[in-house]
């Protein structure tokens, strides 16, 4: 099995999974918070916030990547801040790839979670409060569990998006084997080289398999969510 793929190819797959997982896990709390604000908040600028969250979905990925480079590059304002405060460098590192993937998947995640929060009957939350639960407990014991199908769907969508992310990532963190070369970047590099066709095809098949698995999982969760809503 190990001979099927070269070490570089394994590297790309491993890096892709790591980048996508970190991107999804780290963005999840923010995704839930933003979804809650968009679903429940009634404040000035809500539409603007909604627009900003959705921007990565409609902008060319290259533009998103370039903006990330400007902001999170070592000389960018946010990049400098993170490096000085947390010692965290994004530029040309796998962390930068995770940041790019997280941001590209964020609108999909927020959308799925928001829809499921909006479908929750708030009367159930009232019932919980009359039983002695404060706001935080109502959220943890009623809102969050009832939004769980949407949260899981959002996680799958964001993860799948991260696996396929190419444009923003290559623009922001380039295409360094072992550092920032994820599966899509590796395929891109392989088809540029004369003998790379076979390897590119192998990675392509693996890519398809992973995406398909994610799709099937999200479909299954969507169905469960629909069943839960009618019960």
């Amino acid at each position: 099995m190990t001979e099927f793929l070269s070490p570089e190819e394994w590297n790309a797959i491993w890096l892709s999974l790591k980048v996508s997982t970190v991107a999804t896990v780290v963005s999840l709390p923010f995704g839930i918070a933003i979804a809650l604000i968009l679903a429940r908040g009634r404040f000035f600028g809500r539409t603007l916030l909604d627009g900003i969250v959705h921007l990565p979905l409609v902008m060319p990925p290259v533009v998103t990547g370039y903006l990330l480079l400007l902001a999170f590059g070592r000389k960018g304002p946010l990049g400098a801040f993170f490096e000085q405060t947390f010692g965290l460098v994004f530029a040309f590192r796998w962390t930068g790839a995770a940041l790019a993937c997280g941001i590209m998947g964020f609108p999909l995640m927020v959308r799925a979670i928001r829809l499921s929060i909006e479908s929750i009957d708030r009367k159930l939350e009232q019932a919980a409060s009359t039983l002695g639960a404060g706001r935080a407990l109502v959220f943890l014991t009623v809102t969050l569990p009832l939004a769980l199908p949407g949260i899981l769907a959002g996680v799958v969508l964001s993860f799948a998006r991260a696996l396929g992310e190419f444009g923003a990532t290559i623009t922001f963190v380039s295409n360094i084997p072992g550092q920032t070369q994820t599966v899509p970047s590796a395929i891109y590099a392989l088809i540029q080289t004369p003998e790379g066709d076979a390897a590119a095809l192998r990675l392509t098949l693996i890519s398809i398999a992973i995406s398909l698995a994610a799709l099937v999982l999200s479909e299954y969760l969507a169905r469960r969510m629909a069943r839960g809503a009618t019960a």
């Binding site: 009367k123 009232q126 019932a127 039983l131 014991t141």
Partner: peptide, 30 residues
């Protein structure tokens, strides 16, 4: 005084049981 601190039980017209919890867990929630 917030609803949760009033110690007033409320039985709603439509029951409002928590759909994600079993009957036992619903009963023991409060």
């Amino acid at each position: 005084v917030a609803a949760g601190k009033r110690r007033i039980g409320y039985v709603f017209q439509e029951g409002r049981l928590f759909p994600h919890l079993s009957v036992r867990s619903n009963l023991l929630y409060g």
